[in-house]
Design a protein around this nucleic acid. Structure first.
Lengths: 252, 252
DNA sequence: GCGCCGAACTGGTCTGACCAGTGGACTGGG
DNA sequence: CCCAGTCCACTGGTCAGACCAGTTCGGCGC
């Protein structure tokens, strides 16, 4: 039996795309590393044998993808950036804006990710990391007396630490991305909640319970607590009709 | 207590960025919907009062983000695209290429996501959806006799169905994205495995067990089976040193 | 030795031009 | 009347050359 050749739909490749490819390939091969500089636009014109408009279109694409950054007047040329999740966040934020994503889906996602991360973390954590977690709790307590932004920052540090302990940077990145999107949607409401101080104290209490479970090595319990915590914290902002699916995540 | 004004770091905003913003905002507001057409570049020059280079740079950015598509000669102008996860996948693939992401992290992520989706699905599934799942199993069995690509496709359908039943499109999208990246990394190895037929049969068997657990409404067991299944399927491609963290995901 | 200043760059934008390709209108034949 | 073929206005892709504002750095004067 001969397999049919499986032709690909042919689509025109623009010049600027090939430039983007070349630069991304160089980056993938390691010929280009973050911090390095690209030649100036006018020099690239010579190297790629295209016009400056074409070079610039390629640079704009790379820039919007967070690969490089151009600064006017910089004699060193465009800079290769280290990877950042900002481009990823932009994409997810777009998803959320087009309303393909509801708040409950975002929060459900975080409940799953954070719960799983905590479960793994409670197994893999070292004594030092446990101490770090406890230190973060103290920082959260202190931040409550400052303002909501400070608390939010300390909370972020807590979850980033968890993700790090779980030894999976994808979880870390996803958490960061989704957290950013969620906060972008409702941070104003939270900040203006009349009883925000009480909310923060309650959240702190929940986090402490999670750390207790981690200390005890009880991953299941820690994960359940974490999901419950997040549900309590955010459920008020989710329409009633969407709460059922979230509830399915805390019972098990 | 007066709050300090919290100034933002001021950074120059380029003309093309403002065009991108305007178009994205119009999209977010619903003034622009997928399928609609943008005016031609030369007309946008007039509306935005900038040069064509600037308009084009904006369009290139939007195009690389998967928002629009330009076709040469099309008198209707650039097309607004429906959302697709391809841009998201591109970002994650970039992450993986820069080697900030290891294969084990990707697989661990899938184990978590898929396990969680299955756990939720086993609670929320309707009778019809259960029947759909069973139909997918049959399709997988049939596909084994065709080739690996067909099986892979049927497997994809299974996991997409699971994600849909879990009522969370973010899980669905993430699974799709990460799965694509993982397959991009190792699909050649799998396809050329000498005993690929046996592997497929085993995978099918595991999927059937998962469906059994879902039918019984035993979410915990279904999730554990799913994680175990994925571990068995992919563990061979993961360096020994990275397997420990994955094992932490199957025990609980 | 120190600080000021200007020249030689940088990127950002604009103008105007050419080309290959598209698709709709127009026209001729049935 | 309808349909098929032709043609042309217009599209996006690319190019060349120009100007401006801003940065950097070396040399100049103090």
């Amino acid at each position: 039996m001969t397999k049919s050749p499986r032709f690909q739909p042919v689509q025109p490749v623009r010049a600027y795309q090939r430039i983007v490819e070349q630069i991304e390939d160089a980056l993938a091969r390691g010929d280009l590393v973050p911090g390095q500089r690209l030649p100036s636009e006018r020099e690239l014109v010579g190297q790629f044998a295209v016009s400056r408009s074409t070079v610039r279109e390629a640079l704009r694409v790379l820039e919007s993808n967070g690969v490089v950054r151009s600064r006017p007047g910089d004699p060193n040329g465009p800079e290769i950036l280290p990877f950042s999740s900002s481009a990823l966040r932009k994409q997810v934020a777009r998803l959320a804006r087009v309303d393909e994503l509801t708040l409950s889906e975002l929060i459900g996602f975080r409940m799953i990710m954070d719960g799983a991360a905590i479960q793994v973390a409670s197994r893999l954590r070292t004594a030092e990391e446990l101490a770090e977690l406890e230190a973060t709790l103290v920082a959260m307590r202190t931040a409550i007396d400052v303002d909501f932004d400070a608390f939010s920052e300390a909370d972020l540090a807590f979850h980033e630490l968890i993700a790090r302990i779980s030894r999976n940077s994808l979880i870390q990145t996803c958490n960061e991305v989704v957290r950013g999107v969620v906060l972008g949607l409702i941070s104003d409401k939270i900040a203006h909640a009349p009883n925000s101080r009480a909310l923060m104290l309650e959240s702190l209490q929940h986090h402490a319970e999670v750390v207790d479970a981690i200390r005890a090595g009880n991953g299941q319990a820690a994960a359940r607590l974490a999901r419950q915590n997040m549900f309590d914290y955010y459920a008020g902002y989710v329409p009633d009709s969407e709460q059922e699916t979230l509830r399915a995540l805390i019972e098990d």
